[in-house]
Design a protein around this nucleic acid. Structure first.
Lengths: 251, 251
DNA sequence: CAGGAATTTGCACGAAAATGCATTAAATTT
DNA sequence: AAATTTAATGCATTTTCGTGCAAATTCCTG
């Protein structure tokens, strides 16, 4: 990646998120923080951004946009997404489910090596338009507009043709006994099928999804290779999952 | 390989990838980096590209990048899109190609009756997320990120399964003798295939696309059921198309 | 056709740029 | 106030750049 491209990317992130965290960018790009800090310093000298401790901010803080985005994707989801993105290894094929948490993950995918993303969500695919190294495989089918994912027989058949290394599953509810569930029957079937095609399945869950159940069962809790949850969840809530021997990654 | 050919190739790479790495090109062509660097230096002097450490970038940093183009989608495109959207009848199945003009069309689809949209563009699909009545069929495949459409054998096969009433074709160039063309070979093949599966094909064209030709041929001009063009184009420019007996809708 | 001029290409070498590491300083948190 | 995080500076290493130069090729001219 060329230096000037990196600086452009930093400006893009600044416009998109309303902030730049030096450490985050360095991790995403696989470069040292020194390099990013140097970039920020130079760009601050060029009056392209405002250098602050920890990163940088836009010169003229666009308050409405920033606050709007922050409410859309909470800081918690961003952290979960960034952590999950860090689990990807060069050359792997990962399946990204739809949903806001996975969209956040798509924004933090590593940019310093090549891998393949399979998704049945046009929204996720759209997030990856400017990603420099990822190859995107789009699963087609009848679009279920409520959650914006392709469904139906065509989608099932297309999914059967891939063998992802990791499936990042999005759900609406997780329960120790009742497993993973979601609101739509068709969607549940698709998710189950993706999990069956994938070597590993990880589920990202924010606090409010834990110990809840939705109408349509996807998989038992023991079917996942791991749960990625916020670190501020009390150990007590996690105990039932630990008893089920589900590896838990507290971020 | 002649020097001028090499320079043309460098410009091609620049258009295709949005960047040129001196070392990569030198390796690919089996030449020394010095030679490529010299080329880049000279082309920068001719204002054909922007020289940066490590290679070169397009002059206007965000060249015809898709999302950028989308933001400056002109009033003309909006009108073309709205008119084309008005051609849809209840119950029909229409295929929407990718591209900015069709994205504009997606924003103006009728909302007072039901119909089906088929598309291989996740961007178009995303536009339809909140549309109340449309049914969306997403065509999957390997995502060609430059223009954000699904391509490849999987996409071809999926397209074969639908029989759209109308295909709204997006192109980069239209020429009376050289027909419809676009910049990418794979894309051209996909577009051709969609047209062959569809009962009718309409092409939306702004002024600057007329009487131009791009590298990859899609279809002869006689293969379209109609052209939708801005009304302020002089009759003179349209004459060759009228002679080819292509119905013209001036909006 | 001969011979000189111009162009092209690769190589060498010093300069500049980019990057990471270590160390010290500053800021922030606890 | 101590501990942790983040910055800045200097330094070393690697990569890339530009220039001069020579060999090879092509072009031009008489």
């Amino acid at each position: 990646m060329l230096t000037s491209q990196r600086k452009t990317l930093i400006l893009d992130i600044l416009r998109r998120d309303g902030q730049v965290i030096a450490k985050t960018v360095a991790d995403d790009l696989g470069l040292s923080e020194d390099t990013i800090r140097r970039d920020l310093r130079e760009m601050a000298a060029e009056k392209l951004l405002k250098r602050v401790h920890g990163g940088a901010l836009p010169l003229s803080p666009e308050l409405p946009d920033f606050s709007a985005r922050q409410s859309l994707s909470s800081e918690v989801k961003r952290q979960l997404g960034a952590y999950a993105a860090g689990m990807i290894r060069p050359g792997q094929t990962v399946f990204l489910d739809g949903g806001t948490t996975n969209a956040e993950m798509a924004r933090h995918l590593p940019r310093d090596f090549s891998f393949t993303v399979v998704t049945h969500s046009p929204t996720i695919a759209g997030e990856l338009e400017h990603h420099p190294t990822v190859e995107v495989i789009l699963i087609g089918g009848r679009l279920y507009k409520h959650s914006m994912v392709a469904t139906g027989a065509v989608a099932m058949a297309a999914i059967s043709l891939v063998r992802p290394d990791i499936f990042f599953l999005g759900v609406t509810a997780i329960h120790p006994a009742r497993g993973l569930s979601t609101g739509d029957f068709e969607e549940a079937a698709i998710k189950r099928h993706i999990a069956q095609c994938s070597a590993e399945t990880y589920v990202l869950a924010t606090q409010e999804k834990l110990d809840a159940a939705s109408p349509c069962h996807i998989l038992p809790i023991t079917a996942v290779s791991g749960m990625i949850v916020p670190s501020d969840i009390e150990e007590e809530s996690l105990a039932p999952y630990r008893r089920a021997e589900v590896p838990i990654f507290a971020v």
